[in-house]
Design a protein around this nucleic acid. Structure first.
Length: 223
DNA sequence: AACCAGGAATGTA
DNA sequence: TACATTCATGGT
């Protein structure tokens, strides 16, 4: 067992589920659009929305920037929150066009910190979405904290649950190597694990991290 | 048929 | 700062 439980958890998840091949997208631009579209939405629906964008010729910054909110909304309808998300997609496209000549390479020329701040300044990009973009599109060392992560850590008994996003992010970044591959794989494994476990009350049956889970053996405490 | 899914912005106190 | 509301479709 690793001397650090965060690293140990990665080893257990990786041993149980293997490589996850994230992010499911064809290129960095698609990763960014997907990161916005998947906000509070099942990935299955995001795939439909991405297809809609492709069929409408909207999988490019300039086309997205030029298109009306209504047209983008129609294309991404299956992803839900389509009016708000259409605005978000266009906000990113408009920023890329206006500030970086429409080139992701120019946006990604920023340093790690400045890039994160620039993303956070855009409409529709909060901390989780920014970190997903950093890790899976820009390939920068960061860590994505989502509902699955918080739920798993709480079920393990490692956190109270009301910690800030930044505190949980540092919990991982402070002890993990600055290896983008590893950091991205870790979050993907947590999501994979979360889709089956830690959802309903205890549900520790067959859980690969059962032996380190505080909820193991507990009767009916919801989670 | 209620409930949930790889959040973020906005409003209120 | 802390908490409530809004956004909306599709699968179980």
């Amino acid at each position: 067992m690793s001397v650090n439980r965060i690293r140990d958890l990665f080893d257990r998840l990786h041993a149980a589920y293997g490589p996850q091949a994230w992010w499911p997208a064809n290129d960095p631009f698609e990763v960014i659009l997907g990161a916005i579209l998947t906000q509070r939405t099942a990935w299955r629906n995001v795939e439909h929305a991405i297809r809609g964008l492709r069929e409408s010729g909207l999988l490019a910054a300039e086309a997205l920037d030029d298109a009306s909110v209504e047209r983008v909304a129609v294309a991404i309808r299956p992803a839900g929150f389509y009016n708000a998300k259409a605005r978000k997609l266009k906000a990113f496209a408009a920023h890329l066009m206006a500030e970086h000549d429409g080139e992701l390479e120019r946006l990604f020329a920023r340093g790690d910190g400045p890039l994160r701040e620039e993303l956070l300044g855009l409409y529709g990009i909060g901390e989780e979405t920014a970190d997903a973009i950093l890790v899976y599109a820009a390939e920068r060392p960061s860590f994505v904290i989502d509902a699955y992560t918080r739920r798993l850590l709480r079920r393990l008994g490692w956190i109270a649950g009301d910690e800030s996003y930044g505190a949980l992010r540092e919990l991982f970044l402070d002890v993990l190597p600055r290896d983008v591959r590893l950091l991205g794989e870790y979050h993907a494994l947590i999501v994979r694990h979360g889709k089956v476990h830690c959802r309903t009350a205890p549900a520790c049956d067959g859980c690969p991290v059962r032996s380190i889970c505080a909820a193991a053996g507990e009767p009916e405490t919801g989670g």
